[in-house]
Amino acid sequence: MDRAMGGAPAVLTGSAVRRWVEKSAKVLAENRAYLTDLDSPIGDADHGNNMDRGYKAVLEKLPESDDIGELLKAVAMALISKVGGAAGPLYGTLFLQASKPLTGVREMDGAALAQFFDDAVAGVKMRGRSDAGMKTMLDTLIPAAEAFRQANGDGDDLAAALRAAVDAAEAGMKATIPMRAQRGRASYLGERSIGHQDPGATSSYLILQALADVVAEAP
């Protein structure tokens, strides 16, 4: 690994964001069957297919730009038009809300990334009218955003803070297993939704992990 002396980079560049998107697409394609299997008992068995189709469209639409706002907006619009179901508008709003303050921005430091996560969470909460504990992607995203802000405030570098966020995301994802769903199609199962890991929480974890991996691998 060709890493600079002194560890991971202090900023996330536009080209790193592009690599994050490409890595996300790869990971979601690899986990397509896994996500769909998670979605079978409590949803409609299409989450893996929908996310894979969405990120494939993202790759086609991704501009040759280092403007992070422009990149994330392109991600949002492709997901909105290709994913469908509930995940399309939720992920679309996540990236759309988070992209708004980033127009013209070409690199993000820890503070900017902390704000990015907070904006992403706020977007999903607003669109889904939901919060932590309802067995959704927010059970992954909220602890991740909090852990990142904490680690960044403690002076961790970007890679370490993202690793902390991914650890919190993984714990949050697993915490959806005993939860009773309160949003989406799974909520109609009531008690029968207990015992299943939420597919949306899982895809959110995979996308966050892709970001942490890209930063850890950064030259």
Partner: peptide, 11 residues
């Protein structure tokens, strides 16, 4: 019309 049993998209 969306895909079968899947919501159409905003576009």
């Amino acid at each position: 019309p969306g895909q079968v049993f899947t919501s159409p998209t905003p576009d």
